[in-house]
Design a protein around this nucleic acid. Sequence first.
DNA 1: CTGTTAGCGCGTTCAA
DNA 2: TTGAACGCGCTAACAG
Lengths: 327, 327
Amino acid sequence: MRDVAARAGVSAMTVSRVLKGNEGVGESTRQRVLRAVTDLGYRRNETARNLRLGRHSGLVGLVVTNLANPFYAQLALGAEEVVQSYGLRLVLGNTAEQLAQEKHLVQDLVARQVNGLIVVPAGSDQRHLSPGELEGTPLVLAARPPAGIEADTVLVDDFGGARAATARLVADGHERIGFLGNPPTLFTGAERFRGWWSALEEAGLRPREEWVRRGPYTVVTAEAAALELLGQEDGPSALFCANNRLTLGACRAVRGLGAAAAIAGFDDVESADLLGVPLTLAAYAPDEIGRRAAQLLVDRLEAGAATRPTGPPRRTVIPTLLAVYGR
Amino acid sequence: MRDVAARAGVSAMTVSRVLKGNEGVGESTRQRVLRAVTDLGYRRNETARNLRLGRHSGLVGLVVTNLANPFYAQLALGAEEVVQSYGLRLVLGNTAEQLAQEKHLVQDLVARQVNGLIVVPAGSDQRHLSPGELEGTPLVLAARPPAGIEADTVLVDDFGGARAATARLVADGHERIGFLGNPPTLFTGAERFRGWWSALEEAGLRPREEWVRRGPYTVVTAEAAALELLGQEDGPSALFCANNRLTLGACRAVRGLGAAAAIAGFDDVESADLLGVPLTLAAYAPDEIGRRAAQLLVDRLEAGAATRPTGPPRRTVIPTLLAVYGR
DNA sequence: CTGTTAGCGCGTTCAA
DNA sequence: TTGAACGCGCTAACAG
């Protein structure tokens, strides 16, 4: 900046003013400065700027559990879209569902003066995300609700979607419906289980624990579990699967057995209609979660800029839509 | 830091030393400082630190064309993995294949003092990524090669993969093989087209332009193009598809027609074996591109820290592996 | 309309 | 082993 000032024959202050688009600068000096800037290819140092302005970094931290899952990639895209329209950038962190990694990451991002954080929390306790620990950095939770703290949150209608998909199986005449899901310690796991259960009860059917399988499944292990359930004598004639990994595993099992079993599931699956299995999915747009989360955060940032108390935590729930394939 | 110093009864300088893990600090003062730090919940201001150290932000910019594509999400994950092991973080930018957006994004990231950039370039000319424009910020290109500039690059073996997949169709007895691909202005489009062509020539077959379709396809438009090709009288009996979107579209077409056509393609496709179409895919790990690109960048950063001239541009090519499904 | 002074939070350099 | 002075690049507040 000094160099630019020298070349334009003014002080650094004037350069600063020109670059900021400040009013009180003479048109001729203005032009001279601009010339010097382009001649020297000068650009402001954002680091110094942020320091001086006492403001944050203009960055928003996004912490997800597994970026390899297209779900979170879509979420990131949605968040990026909103955030960038406010001149902010996204800093990415992947926790691989490791709580320790999440803590570490969040602390690092706070030290980097991020304006705010969007977190898909890994554990079932988020006290390490309390305002104190975060030095008051605004926080929005995505996909999983807060536990032990209060925070703005964006959720999917896990319960409603699971219930609707299961109810669809019932409407199609299925009376023996199994459940393939996440561990109940995961919020989504518990909610989707509850949805399955409710749909059965409401139809006058008895949920049978022996047709329930829950674990940290991959497509491969889900297939094995589905094979075992569907292979039983008098076993289930249909399965509700609590996420897209499980749905794919179950489809493999159905195809492998050559069975006529139907599958309902949570999350949409690409090319579901080609899989050759009757499929009813509770679908929704993951990028919408990202967009809403980012919007919640930005609102909070702008509110915080005006007045101190920024209101109570808000919670948004994204609805699901039934998608029916392969019939 | 002053507050911590006051509480510990030392100077700010000592606090700085302790936090840096510097040697010459008495054990007792060290403990006092550490106590004060935890008592006050103090954390260093990374912004000020970066400014003072004259170093960059500790951030690496990752600019991709479409994060919604799982391909780039995997790439991002691979890059994040490497980068974080060096204490760096990834700042994300999505260009949606818009050159203007890419220019803007890159300039912004340079102003934010990123240590380096990994870019999947959108256009067919990258002069806006020259060292001058980037203020010397180290750059690695991913998935697409440099044009008009020199830069470290990580590529996939587009030519070899396309040739191998097509050759496999030939080995299976197909003599009439069509091509469904990207526009030739895209590097990958041109290379994969060349691979298809070579495989046919080497087998003594004549590539037929009337069986070539190229455009910016989605799954839906690709399906239409494939339907048209496969529906011809004496049309192709097999199709080579230059990416995963096209492969899926072609599979839909084959299934829709109830045809016996075989498909070969570039990029792996999840659950390809369930699609009910004979499929030969040139597969590779997208996250490996990210990892290599990040490694190339980090090497460059560390070399740059030591001496000025950091050697000529390097180029890595990731091999593909044939995956055969549905037979 | 423009320049001077001062300081954001830290770390390097020297002296004590 | 510890501290004081100084400056990284920028801008708010006050001159002039």
